[in-house]
Nucleic acid binder design. Structure first.
Length: 228
DNA sequence: GGCCAGGTGTAAA
DNA sequence: TTTACACATGGC
């Protein structure tokens, strides 16, 4: 089917609608990386509460995380959900962070993605979030929102793999750190406003795309009733 | 009270 | 190799 928009045009629509997002929201690079783990399948408001608890307990620090009792860490991050799992993940990540020389060491790695993916608890989305926002490598982050929005626009298949989607973005856009940072942030902003599972179409800046999708035979009835 | 949220690892088929 | 399922809190 004919694409509704180019990826660049969709970005431009979203930027015009929402303005620059300036992501990732955090006070430090380490906090970004912690946030990337805590936000796994979890709303950001819950993550904020967990990070506030970590700060209050003096635990938003790699050495403190590595040294603390895992149950103490789990208690602090309780609001983010999956707190036992995530406490273990944070300890594993903190050990990795320290053993590779902290932020400068991680920035200097030759294959940081491969090394992050080798860690328990870090999958492709978490690794790419860390690479893009903390280590400033131009990789496109694919999340559930990206899959939903571009699937509803008829540009991608629902069953496409993470890397198939990422290849699509990488091959369709110039490899730009700032573009990739902003685009992902705009996707999240847009999804929260207009592309929930239960859609809210009022004022959707991609509404022309929605209208087109409604007319397209390539978009099935269920999906076309939803807003991109 | 049920659904949903910026996933990942593991085990069974 | 694919498909379930566990992990868990808080907002709407």
């Amino acid at each position: 089917m004919k694409p509704l928009f180019t990826l660049q045009a969709i970005h431009d629509h979203l930027l015009a609608a929402y303005g620059p997002q300036g992501w990732w929201p955090a006070d430090s690079v380490f906090e970004m990386m912690v946030g990337a783990i805590l936000t796994q399948n979890t709303s950001w408001t819950n993550v904020e509460a967990a990070i506030a608890n970590m700060k209050a307990a003096g635990l938003l620090d790699a050495r403190a995380i590595a040294a603390c009792n895992e149950d103490q860490l789990a208690t602090a991050i309780r609001p983010s959900g999956y707190y036992n799992q995530k406490a273990r993940k944070l300890k594993i990540f903190a050990d990795f962070y320290l053993s590779h020389g902290g932020e400068p060491g991680l920035r200097a790695l030759t294959s940081p993605r491969q090394m992050l993916l080798a860690l328990h608890g870090i999958g492709p989305e978490t690794a790419d979030s860390m690479l893009l926002y903390a280590l400033e490598r131009p990789v496109f982050v694919i999340d559930a929102y990206t899959r939903r929005i571009f699937g509803r626009l008829g540009l991608t298949l629902p069953e496409a793999s993470y890397h198939a989607l990422q290849d699509y973005f990488h091959s369709s856009l110039p490899s730009s750190l700032e573009l990739f940072k902003e685009y992902h942030a705009l996707i999240v902003m847009h999804a929260k406003r207009h592309c929930r599972i239960r859609p809210v179409c009022v004022g959707c800046p991609l509404q022309d795309g929605c209208a087109h999708a409604l007319e397209s035979e390539a978009v099935n009835v269920q999906r076309s009733s939803e807003c991109a």
